[in-house]
Design a protein around this nucleic acid. Structure first.
Length: 278
DNA sequence: CTCAGTGTTCAGTG
DNA sequence: TCACTGAACACTGA
């Protein structure tokens, strides 16, 4: 689930069900991978009895502010999500509008109960997500290592141009680099480059000023739009490459009938439209 | 059975 | 130092 817009949806869910409440019960899965350094037992101890003061996000990371430190941080990996009872997880794919209302869901890593009767669960199917404890999350790795967050602190056009001029990496690779732009993942990088009409194989310092300005604007607008519709993919504009990029069939075309190509860049599948991005 | 995948990290190489 | 590649991580679903 997780690029910036989906993670922001998760943060808002936490805000709705957890902020202002006290955690009265905690259950952690036995999973030394997802619970990395902290371990389920330490995590449970840090959370039980605490009051949640705020839910923060930077890039793809979320953390809680509690009335006592350390605080928990959450990263979803490729398959993580927050759930609450009654929050229908809309399976937006194709025609299967299945809502799974089984509670609790499968692949639960942590389950929290609150003093008002509410519940919050984090699932992580493929165990690439991480749950950590930090005394000061924004000022400690990994969150302190992140670059700008396009929703929170997008650089000015001038500053953005400076950042690009100093980098020789492929622009696609740079967009995926979390220490450059936090929260951008594979489909957002492709979407932004398509809309900005930039060849993903170009090097960052080779971009012209008009290209740089288009890139910055699209980075902002794509993410703002995705967040505005609460990461509901079926509500993304029909003109977005997003809807047509999946499944690398050679006949894939955009809404405007442009031919979509698939190549591998920076180790990731890259969908792009050569006739538009040059 | 095989393989790709909305992510990150690390070793090896140039 | 920078940057790229590929592998690893772990596991589902097509």
């Amino acid at each position: 689930m997780p690029e910036l817009p989906e993670v922001e949806r998760g943060r808002r869910l936490v805000e709705r069900v957890a902020v202002g409440r006290t955690i009265v019960k905690v259950r952690c899965a036995r999973d030394s991978i997802v619970f990395e350094d902290a371990g389920p037992a330490r995590m449970r101890k840090a959370l039980l009895g605490r009051r949640v003061l705020a839910a923060r996000r930077r890039g793809k990371h979320i953390w809680f502010e509690l009335d006592k430190r350390p605080w928990p941080t959450f990263h979803f990996g490729m398959t993580g999500a927050f759930h609450t009872p009654g929050t229908k997880q809309l399976k937006l794919a194709s025609s299967s509008l299945r809502t799974d209302d089984t509670w609790p869901p499968r692949f639960v890593k942590i389950h929290l109960w609150f003093d008002d009767g509410g519940e919050l669960v984090m699932t992580n199917k493929r165990r690439l997500g991480r749950l950590r404890l930090r005394d000061d999350p924004p000022n400690e790795p990994p969150i302190s290592e992140l670059g700008f967050d396009p929703l929170l602190d997008l650089p000015s056009p001038k500053r953005f141009a400076e950042l690009l001029s100093r980098r020789s990496a492929l622009i696609k690779a740079l967009l995926l680099d979390q220490s450059f732009a936090a929260g951008v993942g594979n489909w957002i990088a492709d979407e932004v480059l398509y809309q900005a009409r930039i060849d993903p194989r170009k090097r960052a310092h080779e971009l012209s000023r008009p290209e740089i300005d288009r890139l910055r604007r699209r980075l902002k607008s794509v993410i703002e739009k995705a967040v505005a519709v609460d990461a509901r993919k079926d509500r993304f504009p029909k003109t977005w490459l997003f809807h047509y990029r999946w499944g690398k069939n050679s006949e894939a075309v955009t809404a405007r009938g442009e031919k979509i190509e698939h190549i591998t860049l920076a180790g990731r599948t890259t969908a792009w439209v050569p006739e538009v991005q040059r």
